[in-house]
Protein backbone atom coordinates (compact mmCIF):
# COMPACT_ATOMS: atom_id res chain seq x y z
CA UNK A 1 0.00 0.00 0.00
CA UNK A 2 1.26 3.47 -0.91
CA UNK A 3 1.97 5.79 2.02
CA UNK A 4 -0.49 8.54 2.83
CA UNK A 5 -1.09 11.37 5.27
CA UNK A 6 -3.75 10.66 7.85
CA UNK A 7 -5.91 13.45 9.24
CA UNK A 8 -8.94 13.28 11.52
CA UNK A 9 -11.05 16.44 11.31
CA UNK A 10 -13.59 17.26 14.02
CA UNK A 11 -16.26 18.91 11.88
CA UNK A 12 -17.81 18.68 8.43
CA UNK A 13 -16.28 22.01 7.38
CA UNK A 14 -12.79 20.93 8.53
CA UNK A 15 -13.27 17.64 6.67
CA UNK A 16 -14.26 19.37 3.46
CA UNK A 17 -11.31 21.78 3.78
CA UNK A 18 -8.93 18.84 4.34
CA UNK A 19 -10.27 16.88 1.38
CA UNK A 20 -10.18 19.68 -1.17
CA UNK A 21 -6.55 18.98 -2.14
CA UNK A 22 -6.16 16.63 -5.13
CA UNK A 23 -5.31 13.08 -4.03
CA UNK A 24 -7.39 13.23 -0.85
CA UNK A 25 -10.01 10.57 -0.04
CA UNK A 26 -12.55 10.35 2.76
CA UNK A 27 -12.21 7.36 5.07
CA UNK A 28 -15.19 6.00 7.03
CA UNK A 29 -15.14 2.28 7.87
CA UNK A 30 -12.76 1.64 4.97
CA UNK A 31 -14.20 -1.80 4.18
CA UNK A 32 -14.06 -1.02 0.45
CA UNK A 33 -11.38 1.69 0.39
CA UNK A 34 -8.72 -0.32 2.25
CA UNK A 35 -9.35 -3.29 0.01
CA UNK A 36 -8.82 -1.04 -3.03
CA UNK A 37 -5.70 0.51 -1.49
CA UNK A 38 -4.20 -2.89 -0.71
CA UNK A 39 -4.64 -3.83 -4.36
CA UNK A 40 -3.12 -0.56 -5.61
CA UNK A 41 -6.37 0.29 -7.40
CA UNK A 42 -6.90 3.46 -5.38
CA UNK A 43 -3.76 5.35 -4.30
CA UNK A 44 -4.75 8.36 -2.18
CA UNK A 45 -2.09 10.78 -0.88
CA UNK A 46 -4.21 11.74 2.10
CA UNK A 47 -6.95 10.00 4.07
CA UNK A 48 -9.47 12.24 5.77
CA UNK A 49 -10.93 10.07 8.52
CA UNK A 50 -14.47 11.32 9.15
CA UNK A 51 -15.42 8.68 11.72
CA UNK A 52 -15.12 11.15 14.62
CA UNK A 53 -17.08 13.97 12.97
CA UNK A 54 -20.02 14.49 15.33
CA UNK A 55 -23.63 14.35 14.17
CA UNK A 56 -23.22 12.08 11.16
CA UNK A 57 -24.25 8.85 12.92
CA UNK A 58 -27.86 9.63 13.78
CA UNK A 59 -31.17 8.26 12.54
CA UNK A 60 -33.61 11.15 12.95
CA UNK A 61 -37.31 11.54 12.18
CA UNK A 62 -38.03 14.63 10.05
CA UNK A 63 -40.84 17.08 10.88
CA UNK A 64 -42.58 16.11 7.60
CA UNK A 65 -42.66 12.41 8.56
CA UNK A 66 -39.60 11.43 6.55
CA UNK A 67 -36.43 9.93 7.98
CA UNK A 68 -32.89 11.32 7.89
CA UNK A 69 -30.04 8.85 8.13
CA UNK A 70 -26.54 10.17 8.81
CA UNK A 71 -23.82 8.99 6.43
CA UNK A 72 -21.91 7.27 9.27
CA UNK A 73 -24.79 5.08 10.48
CA UNK A 74 -23.59 1.49 10.25
CA UNK A 75 -25.45 -0.79 7.86
CA UNK A 76 -26.31 -3.28 10.63
CA UNK A 77 -27.57 -0.57 12.99
CA UNK A 78 -29.90 0.79 10.35
CA UNK A 79 -31.20 -2.64 9.30
CA UNK A 80 -31.96 -3.57 12.92
CA UNK A 81 -33.50 -0.25 13.91
CA UNK A 82 -37.03 -1.46 14.67
CA UNK A 83 -38.85 1.69 13.57
CA UNK A 84 -36.83 1.89 10.36
CA UNK A 85 -37.39 -1.80 9.51
CA UNK A 86 -41.15 -1.44 10.06
CA UNK A 87 -41.41 1.69 7.92
CA UNK A 88 -39.01 0.72 5.14
CA UNK A 89 -38.85 -3.09 5.28
CA UNK A 90 -37.47 -3.64 1.78
CA UNK A 91 -34.54 -1.35 2.56
CA UNK A 92 -33.75 -3.33 5.73
CA UNK A 93 -34.04 -6.55 3.75
CA UNK A 94 -31.64 -5.23 1.11
CA UNK A 95 -29.14 -4.18 3.78
CA UNK A 96 -29.19 -7.67 5.25
CA UNK A 97 -28.72 -9.18 1.77
CA UNK A 98 -25.40 -7.38 1.42
CA UNK A 99 -21.93 -8.53 2.49
CA UNK A 100 -21.44 -10.40 5.78
CA UNK A 101 -22.44 -9.62 9.36
CA UNK A 102 -18.89 -8.41 10.13
CA UNK A 103 -18.88 -6.05 7.16
CA UNK A 104 -22.38 -4.76 7.91
CA UNK A 105 -21.28 -3.98 11.48
CA UNK A 106 -18.49 -1.77 10.15
CA UNK A 107 -19.64 -0.40 6.80
CA UNK A 108 -21.53 2.90 6.75
CA UNK A 109 -24.55 3.85 4.69
CA UNK A 110 -22.60 6.63 2.94
CA UNK A 111 -19.80 4.22 2.09
CA UNK A 112 -22.30 1.71 0.78
CA UNK A 113 -23.60 4.21 -1.77
CA UNK A 114 -20.07 5.21 -2.77
CA UNK A 115 -18.56 1.72 -3.04
CA UNK A 116 -16.80 0.91 -6.30
CA UNK A 117 -17.72 -1.75 -8.82
CA UNK A 118 -16.56 -5.34 -8.30
CA UNK A 119 -15.65 -5.77 -11.99
CA UNK A 120 -12.62 -8.10 -11.89
CA UNK A 121 -10.80 -6.03 -14.53
CA UNK A 122 -11.18 -2.89 -12.43
CA UNK A 123 -9.58 -4.81 -9.55
CA UNK A 124 -6.74 -6.28 -11.65
CA UNK A 125 -4.16 -3.54 -12.20
CA UNK A 126 -2.59 -5.57 -15.05
CA UNK A 127 -5.84 -5.23 -17.07
CA UNK A 128 -7.03 -2.33 -19.16
CA UNK A 129 -9.82 -0.43 -17.40
CA UNK A 130 -11.17 2.97 -18.38
CA UNK A 131 -12.63 3.42 -14.92
CA UNK A 132 -9.33 2.85 -13.12
CA UNK A 133 -7.14 4.43 -15.81
CA UNK A 134 -9.10 6.60 -18.24
CA UNK A 135 -8.25 5.91 -21.86
CA UNK A 136 -6.61 2.54 -21.23
CA UNK A 137 -9.46 0.48 -22.70
CA UNK A 138 -11.81 -2.14 -21.28
CA UNK A 139 -10.67 -5.73 -20.98
CA UNK A 140 -14.07 -6.74 -19.67
CA UNK A 141 -15.52 -6.30 -23.17
CA UNK A 142 -13.48 -9.29 -24.39
CA UNK A 143 -13.18 -11.13 -21.07
CA UNK A 144 -15.34 -12.81 -18.43
CA UNK A 145 -18.37 -10.59 -18.67
CA UNK A 146 -21.38 -12.71 -17.84
CA UNK A 147 -22.08 -10.63 -14.73
CA UNK A 148 -21.74 -7.24 -16.42
CA UNK A 149 -24.30 -4.58 -17.33
CA UNK A 150 -27.24 -4.99 -19.68
CA UNK A 151 -28.64 -1.46 -19.26
CA UNK A 152 -27.01 1.95 -19.63
CA UNK A 153 -23.53 0.65 -20.46
CA UNK A 154 -21.15 2.21 -22.97
CA UNK A 155 -18.24 1.05 -25.12
CA UNK A 156 -15.95 2.52 -22.46
CA UNK A 157 -17.35 0.56 -19.51
CA UNK A 158 -19.77 -2.29 -18.80
CA UNK A 159 -19.34 -2.49 -15.02
CA UNK A 160 -22.27 -2.67 -12.59
CA UNK A 161 -22.89 -0.92 -9.28
CA UNK A 162 -22.73 -3.51 -6.50
CA UNK A 163 -24.96 -1.99 -3.79
CA UNK A 164 -28.10 -3.83 -2.63
CA UNK A 165 -29.13 -1.03 -0.26
CA UNK A 166 -29.29 1.54 -3.08
CA UNK A 167 -31.85 -0.47 -5.06
CA UNK A 168 -34.93 -0.09 -2.81
CA UNK A 169 -33.70 3.39 -1.85
CA UNK A 170 -33.84 4.58 -5.45
CA UNK A 171 -37.27 2.95 -5.83
CA UNK A 172 -38.53 4.86 -2.78
CA UNK A 173 -37.25 8.28 -3.92
CA UNK A 174 -34.41 8.67 -1.43
CA UNK A 175 -32.44 11.92 -1.47
CA UNK A 176 -28.79 12.47 -0.51
CA UNK A 177 -27.44 15.54 1.27
CA UNK A 178 -24.00 16.73 0.16
CA UNK A 179 -21.65 19.19 1.89
CA UNK A 180 -19.05 21.13 -0.05
CA UNK A 181 -16.90 24.23 0.17
CA UNK A 182 -19.77 26.46 -0.89
CA UNK A 183 -22.43 24.93 1.32
CA UNK A 184 -24.94 22.11 1.17
CA UNK A 185 -26.98 20.68 -1.68
CA UNK A 186 -29.42 17.83 -2.22
CA UNK A 187 -29.64 15.33 -5.04
CA UNK A 188 -32.21 12.62 -5.71
CA UNK A 189 -30.43 9.28 -5.31
CA UNK A 190 -31.70 8.36 -8.76
CA UNK A 191 -29.56 11.19 -10.18
CA UNK A 192 -26.60 10.67 -7.85
CA UNK A 193 -24.80 7.85 -9.68
CA UNK A 194 -23.74 8.47 -13.27
CA UNK A 195 -23.88 6.18 -16.26
CA UNK A 196 -20.43 5.55 -17.73
CA UNK A 197 -20.63 7.28 -21.14
CA UNK A 198 -17.10 8.35 -22.08
CA UNK A 199 -16.11 9.07 -18.48
CA UNK A 200 -16.61 5.88 -16.43
CA UNK A 201 -14.11 7.19 -13.86
CA UNK A 202 -16.79 9.66 -12.74
CA UNK A 203 -19.26 7.49 -10.87
CA UNK A 204 -21.35 10.07 -9.04
CA UNK A 205 -22.21 13.74 -9.19
CA UNK A 206 -19.90 14.46 -6.22
CA UNK A 207 -17.37 17.16 -7.02
CA UNK A 208 -13.83 16.88 -5.61
CA UNK A 209 -13.92 17.48 -1.85
CA UNK A 210 -17.68 17.10 -1.54
CA UNK A 211 -18.90 14.88 1.29
CA UNK A 212 -22.08 12.84 1.41
CA UNK A 213 -23.44 13.69 4.87
CA UNK A 214 -26.91 12.13 5.00
CA UNK A 215 -29.59 10.23 3.22
CA UNK A 216 -33.31 10.97 3.46
CA UNK A 217 -36.35 8.80 2.88
CA UNK A 218 -39.62 10.65 2.27
CA UNK A 219 -42.69 10.08 4.44
CA UNK A 220 -44.58 8.98 1.36
CA UNK A 221 -42.34 5.87 1.09
CA UNK A 222 -43.86 4.54 4.34
CA UNK A 223 -47.11 4.06 2.42
CA UNK A 224 -45.61 0.96 0.78
CA UNK A 225 -44.54 -0.78 3.97
CA UNK A 226 -47.23 -3.50 3.82
CA UNK A 227 -46.09 -4.69 0.37
CA UNK A 228 -42.36 -4.11 -0.05
CA UNK A 229 -39.69 -6.71 -0.79
CA UNK A 230 -36.15 -7.01 -2.07
CA UNK A 231 -35.12 -10.14 -3.95
CA UNK A 232 -31.51 -10.87 -4.82
CA UNK A 233 -30.23 -13.69 -7.02
CA UNK A 234 -26.59 -14.60 -6.51
CA UNK A 235 -24.20 -17.40 -7.25
CA UNK A 236 -24.29 -18.72 -3.69
CA UNK A 237 -26.95 -18.41 -1.01
CA UNK A 238 -25.20 -15.79 1.11
CA UNK A 239 -22.27 -13.36 1.09
CA UNK A 240 -22.10 -12.72 -2.65
CA UNK A 241 -22.87 -9.77 -4.89
CA UNK A 242 -26.07 -9.81 -6.92
CA UNK A 243 -26.21 -11.31 -10.38
CA UNK A 244 -29.54 -9.50 -10.55
CA UNK A 245 -31.77 -8.07 -7.85
CA UNK A 246 -35.10 -6.27 -7.68
CA UNK A 247 -36.91 -4.03 -5.23
CA UNK A 248 -40.69 -4.02 -5.55
CA UNK A 249 -43.17 -1.98 -3.52
CA UNK A 250 -46.92 -1.77 -4.05
CA UNK A 251 -49.87 0.17 -2.71
CA UNK A 252 -53.00 -1.85 -3.29
CA UNK A 253 -56.53 -0.44 -2.96
CA UNK A 254 -59.78 -2.26 -3.74
CA UNK A 255 -57.94 -5.12 -5.44
CA UNK A 256 -56.03 -2.85 -7.83
CA UNK A 257 -52.53 -1.40 -7.83
CA UNK A 258 -52.75 2.22 -6.86
CA UNK A 259 -49.00 2.84 -6.98
CA UNK A 260 -45.85 0.82 -7.69
CA UNK A 261 -42.15 1.44 -7.06
CA UNK A 262 -39.63 -0.72 -8.87
CA UNK A 263 -35.86 -0.81 -9.24
CA UNK A 264 -33.26 -3.30 -10.40
CA UNK A 265 -29.75 -4.01 -9.13
CA UNK A 266 -26.79 -5.72 -10.79
CA UNK A 267 -27.86 -4.61 -14.26
CA UNK A 268 -26.21 -1.18 -14.70
CA UNK A 269 -23.62 1.25 -13.36
CA UNK A 270 -26.33 2.65 -11.10
CA UNK A 271 -29.37 1.33 -9.25
CA UNK A 272 -31.92 1.20 -12.05
CA UNK A 273 -35.35 2.73 -11.46
CA UNK A 274 -37.98 1.12 -13.70
CA UNK A 275 -40.44 4.01 -14.13
CA UNK A 276 -42.08 2.77 -17.34
CA UNK A 277 -42.90 -0.51 -15.61
CA UNK A 278 -44.34 1.36 -12.61
CA UNK A 279 -46.68 3.32 -14.88
CA UNK A 280 -47.88 0.14 -16.60
CA UNK A 281 -48.90 -1.31 -13.23
CA UNK A 282 -50.97 1.65 -12.04
CA UNK A 283 -54.66 0.72 -11.95
CA UNK A 284 -53.96 -2.89 -12.95
CA UNK A 285 -54.98 -6.03 -11.10
CA UNK A 286 -51.94 -7.37 -9.30
CA UNK A 287 -51.31 -10.73 -10.94
CA UNK A 288 -48.63 -12.68 -12.77
CA UNK A 289 -49.76 -11.37 -16.17
CA UNK A 290 -49.59 -7.68 -15.30
CA UNK A 291 -46.29 -8.25 -13.47
CA UNK A 292 -44.80 -9.95 -16.53
CA UNK A 293 -45.86 -7.07 -18.80
CA UNK A 294 -44.26 -4.60 -16.40
CA UNK A 295 -41.06 -6.65 -16.26
CA UNK A 296 -40.85 -6.73 -20.04
CA UNK A 297 -41.21 -2.95 -20.12
CA UNK A 298 -38.49 -2.58 -17.48
CA UNK A 299 -35.99 -4.46 -19.65
CA UNK A 300 -37.21 -3.17 -23.03
CA UNK A 301 -34.01 -1.20 -23.65
CA UNK A 302 -31.65 -3.88 -22.33
CA UNK A 303 -28.93 -5.32 -24.51
CA UNK A 304 -26.13 -7.73 -23.67
CA UNK A 305 -22.62 -6.31 -23.21
CA UNK A 306 -20.99 -9.73 -23.55
CA UNK A 307 -21.91 -13.27 -22.49
CA UNK A 308 -24.75 -11.93 -20.39
CA UNK A 309 -27.86 -12.08 -22.51
CA UNK A 310 -29.30 -14.44 -19.89
CA UNK A 311 -29.42 -11.56 -17.41
CA UNK A 312 -32.14 -9.83 -19.45
CA UNK A 313 -34.58 -12.72 -19.02
CA UNK A 314 -33.33 -13.35 -15.48
CA UNK A 315 -33.96 -9.72 -14.50
CA UNK A 316 -37.54 -9.97 -15.78
CA UNK A 317 -38.17 -13.14 -13.79
CA UNK A 318 -36.58 -11.67 -10.66
CA UNK A 319 -38.75 -8.58 -10.99
CA UNK A 320 -41.90 -10.70 -11.41
CA UNK A 321 -40.92 -12.80 -8.39
CA UNK A 322 -40.18 -9.71 -6.31
CA UNK A 323 -43.61 -8.32 -7.23
CA UNK A 324 -45.28 -11.60 -6.24
CA UNK A 325 -43.43 -11.55 -2.92
CA UNK A 326 -44.49 -7.92 -2.39
CA UNK A 327 -48.09 -8.79 -3.23
CA UNK A 328 -48.05 -11.64 -0.68
CA UNK A 329 -47.08 -9.00 1.86
CA UNK A 330 -44.14 -7.87 3.96
CA UNK A 331 -43.09 -10.65 6.38
CA UNK A 332 -44.41 -10.33 9.92
CA UNK A 333 -40.94 -10.48 11.35
CA UNK A 334 -38.87 -7.54 10.15
CA UNK A 335 -36.14 -7.22 9.30
CA UNK A 336 -36.82 -10.39 7.37
CA UNK A 337 -34.31 -13.09 6.66
CA UNK A 338 -33.45 -11.96 3.10
CA UNK A 339 -35.83 -13.34 0.49
CA UNK A 340 -34.49 -16.22 -1.53
CA UNK A 341 -35.36 -17.31 -5.06
CA UNK A 342 -35.84 -20.76 -3.54
CA UNK A 343 -38.67 -19.61 -1.27
CA UNK A 344 -42.19 -19.64 -2.62
CA UNK A 345 -43.95 -16.33 -3.31
CA UNK A 346 -46.57 -17.52 -0.86
CA UNK A 347 -43.95 -16.72 1.72
CA UNK A 348 -42.00 -19.69 2.99
CA UNK A 349 -39.83 -17.17 4.79
CA UNK A 350 -42.65 -14.88 5.77
Amino acid sequence: MKTFDYVRPASVSDAVAAATEPGAAYLAAGTNLLDLMKGGITRPDRLVDITRVPGLDRIEPMPDGGLRIGALVRNADLAHDAEFARSYPSVAEALLSGASAQLRNAATVGGNLLQRTRCAYFYDTASACNKREPGSGCDARIGENRLHAVLGWSDACIATHPSDFAVPLVALDAVVEIAGKTGRREVALEDFHRLPGDTPERESVLEPGELLVALRLPAEARGFSAHARYLKVRERTSYAFAVVSAAAALRIENGAIRDARLALGGVAAKPWRARSAEKLLEGQRPDAASFRRAAEAALADAKPSGDNEFKIELAQRVLVRALLLALAGTPKRVPALPASPFSSPAGAFA
Binding site: A29, T31, L34, T51, A106
Partner: peptide, 26 residues
Protein backbone atom coordinates in the same frame (compact mmCIF):
# COMPACT_ATOMS: atom_id res chain seq x y z
CA UNK B 1 -6.38 -10.02 4.26
CA UNK B 2 -9.17 -8.58 2.04
CA UNK B 3 -12.35 -9.05 4.07
CA UNK B 4 -13.51 -12.19 2.33
CA UNK B 5 -12.74 -15.07 4.71
CA UNK B 6 -13.51 -13.87 8.25
CA UNK B 7 -10.41 -15.50 9.85
CA UNK B 8 -9.44 -12.10 11.32
CA UNK B 9 -12.77 -11.52 13.08
CA UNK B 10 -12.49 -9.72 16.43
CA UNK B 11 -14.91 -7.77 18.61
CA UNK B 12 -14.63 -3.99 18.87
CA UNK B 13 -16.85 -2.58 21.61
CA UNK B 14 -18.75 -5.89 21.52
CA UNK B 15 -19.32 -5.94 17.74
CA UNK B 16 -17.70 -8.40 15.35
CA UNK B 17 -15.70 -6.91 12.49
CA UNK B 18 -12.95 -7.93 10.06
CA UNK B 19 -9.74 -6.59 11.60
CA UNK B 20 -7.91 -6.76 8.23
CA UNK B 21 -10.11 -4.05 6.71
CA UNK B 22 -9.66 -1.36 9.29
CA UNK B 23 -6.77 0.92 10.21
CA UNK B 24 -5.47 0.72 13.77
CA UNK B 25 -4.99 4.48 13.83
CA UNK B 26 -8.73 5.13 13.54
Amino acid sequence: DRGQCGACTILIDGRRINSCLTLAVS
